[in-house]
Simulated scan of single mutants.
Amino acid sequence: MIHPVIKDAIQKNSEELTELRRKLHSEPELPFEEEKTTALICEYLENLGIPFRRTEPTGVIATIEGGKPGKTVALRGDMDALPVEELNKDLPYVSKEEGKMHACGHDAHTAMLMIAAKALLEIKDELPGKVRLIFQPAEEIAEGAKAMVKQGAMDGVDNVFGIHIWSQMPTHKVSCTPGPSFASADLFKVTFKGKGGHGAMPHNCIDAAIVASSFVMNVQTVVSRTIDAKSPAVLTVGKIVAGTRFNVIAENAVIEGTVRCFDTETRDHVEQQLQHYAEHVAAVYGATAKVEYTRGTQAVINDEYSAKLVQKVASEAFGDVIYNEKPTMGGEDFSEYMDHAPGSFALVGSGNSEKDTEWAHHHGKFNIDEDALATGAELYAQYAWAYLNE
């Protein structure tokens, strides 16, 4: 199942892998602004002789045609950065862009997929089928996968595989369990309208700040009292804006938050309950409520066959590396690809206390243990080889 040429190619190109990741890290670009990153990937693929096409506004889709007929497997690597100020100022490859950094590891994903492509090229004639390479923009705003699918990324694909570097797992460990992996991620906005007036005369007003406060305190019971405890869900209020001045009763209040869960039934229920709670809390105070609920990414549910194949490949390639990471309530738009073909999404550990790489994703001090890069790159390539030969 493990191709020795792939393993040798990854090791042979390990220095280039690190250099690519560091270059990408030092030049972070926000969602749908990844112009330099897209250009770098296009140039790299062109030099390798791999046919590709640039997607709009950014991103790349490429295909390695095997020497034998067969299925098509897709490998996805995302490439956008975050609007986060990097705090690792002593790094030789620190972000050159103020207020922007690769705080989630997408620089690693892109570099790993580039080197995986180079390794697969060495066994191109042996490949029974095709390998689709998806270099995806805008994962952080949950729009990139949709854009890539619309532009043909999954056309003719039989199986799809993705990787996420994970700082909460020890370096080299691999987790890919069948079933839920990442939660769905929805957004909600609730606008309460009361009646403003002078702060000294609240009896003449309907205080939207009080209505909003009551809603925030009560809405948590949607999860704690209306959902089966065996169905995980998170409802978080992250932003409240109310009022205009210290001595003016607030006429309007706006609340924004997010909902995370793993199944459609729970998702539907929370959406309905948000509407119910908002309307009734507003009615108690004589105010009105408007609820806007936006469905974001769907839950990432790993296909059993694909996940077990990842485990088998990882064990044969790296030994005792399988790690059982629990599902996260974080969101991932990789789910868009799984609407079109079965697949799985693996986590590759990059946490190392000695190298200070255990910081949470999206933190200004986030960094990765670069020893994990070769693990990820080889897992990409070996999985493609194994799947096409199944």
Rank of each mutant, 00 (worst) to 15 (best):
residue 199 G to F: 04
residue 154 M to W: 10
residue 161 F to K: 03
residue 147 A to I: 07
residue 165 I to F: 13
residue 137 P to W: 05
residue 221 T to D: 05
residue 187 L to N: 15
residue 216 V to W: 01
residue 181 S to M: 14
residue 172 H to F: 13
residue 215 F to S: 01
residue 196 G to I: 05
residue 175 S to R: 12
residue 226 T to D: 00
residue 204 N to M: 14
residue 201 M to H: 13
residue 195 K to T: 01
residue 228 D to A: 13
residue 167 S to M: 07
residue 162 G to T: 09
residue 145 A to N: 10
residue 150 K to H: 02
residue 132 R to E: 01
residue 158 D to L: 00
residue 192 F to T: 02
residue 175 S to V: 04
residue 175 S to Q: 12
residue 163 I to W: 09
residue 216 V to L: 06
residue 166 W to N: 14
residue 200 A to K: 08
residue 128 P to C: 00
residue 229 A to P: 14
residue 187 L to R: 15
residue 183 A to T: 03
residue 154 M to F: 00
residue 137 P to G: 03
residue 131 V to H: 04
residue 164 H to F: 03
residue 186 D to C: 06
residue 210 I to G: 10
residue 198 H to P: 10
residue 178 P to V: 08
residue 154 M to N: 00
residue 218 N to F: 11
residue 155 D to P: 13
residue 227 I to H: 02
residue 167 S to D: 03
residue 165 I to L: 15
residue 228 D to R: 12
residue 211 V to H: 06
residue 185 A to R: 01
residue 223 V to L: 07
residue 160 V to A: 08
residue 166 W to P: 14
residue 199 G to T: 04
residue 148 M to N: 11
residue 139 E to K: 03
residue 164 H to W: 09
residue 217 M to D: 13
residue 164 H to M: 12
residue 214 S to H: 13
residue 227 I to C: 05
residue 213 S to M: 10
residue 189 K to P: 14
residue 210 I to E: 11
residue 213 S to P: 12
residue 184 S to F: 03
residue 202 P to M: 04
residue 183 A to Y: 05
residue 172 H to S: 15
residue 208 A to F: 06
residue 141 I to A: 09
residue 227 I to L: 08
residue 206 I to C: 05
residue 129 G to I: 10
residue 226 T to I: 05
residue 221 T to S: 13
residue 214 S to C: 11
residue 215 F to A: 09
residue 147 A to V: 04
residue 158 D to K: 08
residue 168 Q to P: 13
residue 131 V to M: 06
residue 203 H to V: 00
residue 229 A to R: 13
residue 133 L to W: 06
residue 222 V to L: 04
residue 198 H to V: 04
residue 211 V to G: 07
residue 208 A to P: 14
residue 225 R to V: 02
residue 219 V to G: 03
residue 173 K to D: 05
residue 184 S to N: 14
residue 156 G to L: 08
residue 128 P to V: 07
residue 225 R to G: 02
residue 196 G to A: 04
residue 175 S to A: 13
residue 149 V to I: 03
residue 220 Q to G: 09
residue 157 V to W: 02
residue 178 P to N: 00
residue 158 D to M: 08
residue 130 K to F: 06
residue 194 G to P: 11
residue 208 A to G: 12
residue 136 Q to E: 09
residue 189 K to R: 15
residue 129 G to S: 06
residue 132 R to H: 00
residue 220 Q to A: 11
residue 177 T to S: 15
residue 220 Q to W: 05
